[in-house]
Each structure stands twice: as C-alpha cells, then as structure tokens.
C-alpha cells in the first residue's frame, strides 16, 4: 500500500512538472517580447509549485516545529522568486524586496524558535 502511494505521488508530481515545462510559456504581467521570456515564465511556475508543496506541510504539520520549518523555507523561496522577477522584468528593485524579505524572515524564525523553546526574550 505504501509503495502504491509513493508511485502515485511521484507520477502526479512528474506530470505536473511536465505540463508546466511543455505548456506554461506565458505569465500575464510579464513583458512577452524579451529574450528568454518563456524560460523565466516556466521558472516562476516551478518556484510557485515548490511553494505550494511547502504550504501543504504548513497546513498539515503534526508539531509546531514542522510549521516553523515551513515558514522558514517559504521565506528563502521568496528570495529566489524575487531574483527571477528581477531578471524577467529588468527592474532591479525586486532584489531590494528579496534582501529585506530574507532578513525579516531570519529574525522572525529566530523569534518563533525561541518562543517554541519556552523561554522569554530576556535571558
């Protein structure tokens, strides 16, 4: 039963990846005439697919530590998303958002981890 579930999940993931790579060549808000624009649209869709997998773990996770790991990983994924957006639209301020988001996510993760540990912020 476990093997059947594993094979089914792998087939679904590979199918979604294949559909994204073959057909998802356009995002509405990106300028379409630029060089490599189809590649950047596919990359955006793949990062969004990874973020959906992380959302599954955040919603389901049995312990609080699982959810905190998910939030941390989501913050790192957003930095990559900002880099691809900056390449696709040729505007450098997307990476400013990325740097700020990464540092804020780091501080938030430290605060959540310390809160889970059961101590106050004083000691």
């Amino acid at each position: 039963m476990k093997t059947v579930r594993w094979i089914l999940g792998a087939l679904v993931l590979l199918g979604i990846l294949l559909v994204v790579i073959l057909y998802a060549t356009d995002v509405v808000f990106l300028p379409s005439g630029r060089e490599h624009s189809g590649f950047f649209a596919r990359a955006l869709y793949i990062v969004i697919l990874s973020a959906l997998m992380v959302f599954f773990r955040i919603l389901k996770g049995p312990t609080p530590a699982d959810r905190i790991v998910g939030v941390d990983i989501l913050g790192i994924l957003v930095v990559g998303l900002c880099a691809i957006l900056a390449l696709a639209t040729d505007r450098s301020w997307y990476l400013d958002i990325g740097i700020a988001w990464g540092l804020q996510s780091f501080i938030g993760t430290l605060a959540l981890a310390k809160f889970m540990e059961g101590r106050t912020f004083d000691d």
Partner: peptide, 13 residues
C-alpha cells in the same frame, strides 16, 4: 543559524 535555532528549540520542547 536559523536552522540550528529551530532544531535546538524543537529538541528542548
């Protein structure tokens, strides 16, 4: 640093 903090907090919890 954040990964180490999460694992230490989970072990202490």
């Amino acid at each position: 640093v954040s990964a180490h903090a999460i694992s230490r907090g989970a072990h202490k919890a």
